[in-house]
Design a protein around this nucleic acid. Structure first.
Lengths: 149, 149
DNA sequence: GTAATTTATTAAACATGTTAAATATATGAC
DNA sequence: GTCATATATTTAACATGTTTAATAAATTAC
């Protein structure tokens, strides 16, 4: 008797989308002032946080597909927010590094960004906020159930 | 002392994105077989579920921006999955309706779609699943805190 | 009733999402 | 060493996301 699709308003994919739009709105507004997109911001953040790395790893961390990342890196390089060099031991790879100007962009937006994050956390309450992050993590981690023989 | 950005792996926007990618993966695979995108599917679902309506309301329900919806409706109309007519009382508006062929597409994918939804719900457990939906709803609803004088 | 304003939709331009194919270098089989 | 295969990145093509502007009809002010 549970054999019906959830109404679109109770659909998990749509709920995830709506929630994300709500959270991203103010962040996008902030970044628009600097002329940077949400995705470009993610790439810069990953590089600042974890240091230089190759595109494939950036894509994983920033949750981007490689073709998208290719174009994003081209634009970030044009604007001198990153630097690229070839990996000497494996010439298929390259190593991408954030530049001083790139770090500068992050620094400029850090305070607002932190404030927006805290605002959302306070709105839900810390416990519910952490619970939400845990549930999301659980969702994105487990592909298959542990018992599958 | 809490004045630092969460690591990207603990960032709410990125967590929402990752979770959504995980959930959408199998659904996209299903729809790809019929040559329909995730967004086209959302539009058809909304029209099937709530009946004919104008684009502005479709956009709200399906969580799409109007310019995107314009293009999507053009393609759905080309494939005869929807019909459009002008609203007689207000000629700025139009009324969009799913066609028999459109309902057919939904019917074809209904069982798989329900199965995938249940699979996710079972993975989290019903209680945690409902809790997640509630948290997401809360996130996407409240813009400002109630007390702001 | 006409001008200014508002509302519904579309168009345009650029960035990204998504899938498939191309390119270049590495690795392994022999 | 040569060939087949695998890996890292890019290109191509089409769909959507996002912001701003254009268009058309409706509403309001007067």
């Amino acid at each position: 008797m549970t054999k019906a699709l959830p109404s679109t308003s109770r659909s998990l994919p749509i709920s995830l989308l709506r929630a994300r739009e709500e959270v991203m709105g103010p962040i996008r507004a902030m970044l628009a002032d600097v002329g940077i997109t949400e995705q470009q911001w993610r790439v810069l953040r990953v590089l600042e946080e974890r240091g230089a790395m190759e595109p494939t790893r950036i894509a994983e961390q920033a949750c981007l597909l490689l073709p998208s990342l290719t174009r994003i890196l081209q634009k970030l390089e044009q604007r001198a927010l990153i630097q690229r060099r070839q990996d000497e031991s494996d010439k298929r790879k390259q190593i991408v590094q954030i530049s001083a100007a790139g770090s500068e962009v992050i620094a400029q937006n850090l305070d607002t960004s932190i404030a927006l994050t805290e605002q959302v956390r306070d709105r839900l309450g810390v416990e519910r906020y952490e619970m939400l992050l845990d549930l999301l993590k659980e969702l994105s981690e487990g592909g298959a159930a542990p018992s599958e023989d």
